[in-house]
Write a protein that binds this DNA or RNA. Structure first.
Lengths: 219, 219
DNA sequence: TCATCCAGTAAACAGTCGTTCGCCGACTTT
DNA sequence: AAAGTCGGCGAACGACTGTTTACTGGATGA
């Protein structure tokens, strides 16, 4: 059964987590491919060789960070899924959730944004996989909404991809405003949220007129 | 006047360009922050110390690469600006231009995509600046189109940002299909182009209904 | 209680790195 | 033709890198 996880294994997990945390902290100002193994162990206070007890190499740690990052994101996304029905509220709610995610998990998202096209293949692929999964889930949600009546699966997926891309872009925009609270920063955040809401509204508008001409939007 | 640029200065420029080319080549599979000065000079066949005759450090070379990259992009964008008027043609043309840019300047765009959120601040800011400039120009173009009648400046800019983000995302998607020509690669490219066209069409649809309810889309 | 396991250690390995220095020699200017 | 400029070279520097090795000592299970 799930007994209290012997002091042995517990300590190992704590060290592993310390390595992940230190990595994420150091990645705030540099990218994974320039982050050294010794740099992390030094930060944690562990001998360099100890690193290998937990990760094969830095890409391995990177992939672990991807999983950790998307874990915190998924938890937050469930909030939207169980949201209201009116499109205004869904849009506002989505933007708020994005803003909250970036505020509360800034380092996580910065890591994802940075390594999404970064220099480490394994990590890039892990992120791409998670985003695809995310888009697939969203497509299922969208397909169930009344606005999607008469849509074929391909177009629903097309719309889901557009939404995901837009969410990533919006979150990235939030990243660029300084974390330290200040009047200017708050204003910048509000401007980004305002623009993002209008963009989502415009997309939603396009969505609701997609079938207007009876061609299903096809050329 | 512009006399034929003394053999002295000409040679210097040739070396400088060789450094830039080598850098771009090496950046295909890694990111700027992990690229070493010696790595570049070795590739070119120049002594490490020679690097400093052309660039202060690697960030300096990175910024030069940003300018070079956007130079080739701007040249290509002019093709769209002087394009047809019908929205179908503009959309198809835009997607084709994006595809062509990624095909012909793959290394340039890969660099931009990778360093847009990369670990080197100066380069990140240079890219952000160029993209802002790009969005501003696009906003001017959009404002001049009949579809924008009755739009306020903020909403036009909001739309321009949406288009730019979408173009970047589309170009990035093209990047992920292998450069080597193959049946599968060609099919993947066509799928991306098809999705991108539909997304642009959906956005265009939203744009043309933006003022429908007389509130200018405002909540 | 005793043998076993294994997370973490300390030291050494062969490299690599960015940067500085003085110097050469071909081009440029006078 | 002489003087000056300056791109590129070669060598040396101290610091840092990832990885391997044999080890220690506390938790673990018999």
């Amino acid at each position: 059964m799930s007994h209290t996880l012997g002091a042995r294994q517990a300590q190992k997990l704590r060290t592993r987590q310390a390595l992940l945390d230190a990595g994420l902290r150091l990645l705030e100002h540099q990218s994974l491919s320039s982050l050294g193994l010794r740099e992390i162990t030094r930060e944690v206070g562990v001998a360099p060789a100890g690193f290998y007890r937990h990760f094969r190499d830095m890409s391995d740690l990177g992939v672990a960070l991807v999983e950790e990052s998307f874990g915190s994101l998924r938890a937050m996304v469930r909030v939207i899924r169980d949201g209201r029905a009116r499109s205004d509220e869904v849009i506002d709610g989505t933007v708020d959730v994005i803003a909250a995610y970036v505020r509360d998990h800034r380092a996580h998202f910065r890591f994802i944004a940075r390594e999404r096209n970064g220099g480490v293949r394994e990590v890039r692929e892990a992120i791409a996989g998670e985003l695809t999964l995310f888009a697939e889930e969203l497509a299922i949600d969208l397909a169930g909404q009344p606005e999607s009546e008469g849509w074929n699966a391909e177009d629903v997926r097309m719309l889901a991809d557009l939404y995901v891309d837009h969410m990533v872009m919006t979150a990235t925009a939030f990243l660029d405003v300084p974390a330290a609270p200040s009047p200017e920063a708050a204003a910048a955040e509000r401007a980004i949220a305002r623009t993002a809401r209008r963009q989502m509204r415009l997309i939603h508008l396009g969505r609701s007129h997609w079938l207007d001409d009876g061609r299903g939007g096809a050329a």
